[in-house]
């Protein structure tokens, strides 16, 4: 029992980060129908910038803010140079390649100016040795904090989408961009804000991951993006609660299969789940079959 619960807690915690990444992918998907394949580099940018700033003596909250702003800004640039030009050509998939390229560019820039070696990431809230005793089972306090924080961020975003003017506009854009434009909604502004927010939240996901693994380097983020992407599709692309469910399912399955079957199978199993979901329920666990407007 202790064995299973320990695995499940780690899985829920890491899974909540996958969910957060999946939600950041949703954000840009709603407004532009694109997915940023360079999102791994965006979350690395924030985490590396935070770690390097903190190492040079900047207070951690300020370093984190600088990092989050950096990834938000990078996403605004990505929208301008990768997504906007492609959107002017009807049906172009150019954004897929150019966002991936943009990610590689960011990775190169970070390697050049912040160094290629792994940098230790400071403990933001608690240190790794702190734990909570839950019915006699030792649960790492950092896991709980990461879990709670991810859930809070996702919940806040969902509330914002449902109850703020901006959120309603995003919903409108997601359902019918042409009609929204006809109503005089400033589309560019909505799109840019969604990208900036997506970048900022990706940065938060990066910082949370760094709390668990302890170091970051410029290659950090790529495998996280894949896990986030899988979570997103398994849960139902474009749906926040789907992303959350998908992330948690993937996180827990990875750990439980790793613990009970073989740790070598742990990572591969999430891709197997992806294939099964795509075959049996392509719209994802909580997704609805999509009707495309002619």
């Amino acid at each position: 029992m202790r064995f299973t619960i320990t695995l499940a807690v780690a899985g829920l915690s890491v899974g909540s980060i996958y969910a957060l990444i999946a939600v950041t992918l949703n954000l840009t998907f709603w407004t532009t129908r694109t997915v940023n394949f360079g999102q791994g580099a965006i979350l690395m940018l924030c985490t590396m910038a935070t770690a390097v700033a903190a190492r040079s003596g900047v207070p951690i909250w300020l370093a984190g803010t600088v990092g989050i702003l950096a990834s938000a800004f990078a996403m605004v640039i990505a929208e301008r140079v990768c997504v906007l030009p492609a959107s002017k050509v009807g049906g172009s998939m150019g954004w897929a390649v150019s966002t991936l390229g943009f990610g590689i560019l960011i990775q190169g820039i970070v390697s050049k100016y912040l160094g290629n070696q792994a940098v230790a990431f400071p403990d933001v809230v608690l240190d790794a040795a702190q734990f909570v005793d839950l019915f006699g089972i030792r649960i790492g306090a950092q896991y709980l904090v990461v879990f709670a924080f991810s859930l809070t961020v996702i919940a806040l975003l969902d509330l914002a989408i449902r109850y703020t003017v901006w959120g309603r506009v995003v919903q409108a854009v997601a359902q019918d961009p042409e009609l929204t434009r006809v109503f005089g909604v400033p589309m560019r502004r909505v799109v840019v804000v969604s990208f900036a927010l997506s970048g900022a939240m990706a940065g938060v996901a990066g910082i949370l991951t760094a709390q668990i693994i302890g170091t970051v380097d410029p290659a950090f983020g790529f495998s996280l993006l894949i896990s986030g992407f899988v979570a997103s599709i398994v849960g139902g692309f474009g749906r926040n609660w789907g992303a959350l469910l998908g992330g948690l399912v993937i996180g827990v399955i990875e750990q439980v299969v790793g613990g009970y079957v073989s740790t070598a199978a742990g990572h591969g199993v999430s891709l197997a789940v992806l294939m099964v979901v795509l075959a049996v329920r392509p719209q994802g666990l909580l997704g609805r079959a999509e009707a495309v407007k002619a």
Binding site: L7, A10, I17, T209, I213, Q255, G258, H267
Partner: peptide
């Protein structure tokens, strides 16, 4: 560079 090694 695994994200988590709890299972191991």
């Amino acid at each position: 560079r695994a994200t988590d090694v709890t299972a191991q």
